[in-house]
């Protein structure tokens, strides 16, 4: 596969390490009420869609950027990639 790195252009997927669903960006507050249940959902449950999936890839043999890649899990077509940090900052802003 080729990952369309937003800064570096298409890069061989073997340079990356895959983590999983981009919902891992939304870590619950560990000090909040109900953290146990929130963390169970965060750590263990996945939508696991057959289709468009937003997922985290780490450019380990590259620039060490974490990316949010939008990819179709049925066709493997990649619809886009963003720096995860930008996505995470936007999520904070939206809160």
């Amino acid at each position: 596969m080729l990952i369309p790195h937003p800064l570096l252009g298409p890069r061989d997927a073997v340079e990356f390490t895959y983590l999983g669903d981009a919902s891992l960006l939304a870590r619950p507050d560990g000090l909040a009420e109900g953290a146990d249940a929130a963390f169970h959902d965060y750590v263990y449950l996945r939508d696991n869609p057959a289709g468009v999936h937003r997922e985290l890839w780490y450019h380990e043999q590259g620039d060490r950027s974490w990316l949010v890649v939008t990819r179709n899990t049925v066709t493997h077509e990649i619809l886009g990639a963003e720096l995860a940090r930008d996505v995470a900052l936007a999520m904070r802003g939206a809160k």
């Binding site: 983590l19 960006l25 060490r64 974490w66 940090r85 995470a88 900052l89 904070r92």
Partner: peptide, 18 residues
């Protein structure tokens, strides 16, 4: 060494980017 560094980058970029 590798997994910890990866986790640290994950925490830095994805969890606490500010």
């Amino acid at each position: 060494a590798g997994p910890v560094f990866r986790q640290m980058e994950f925490a830095r970029q994805c969890l606490w980017p500010d």
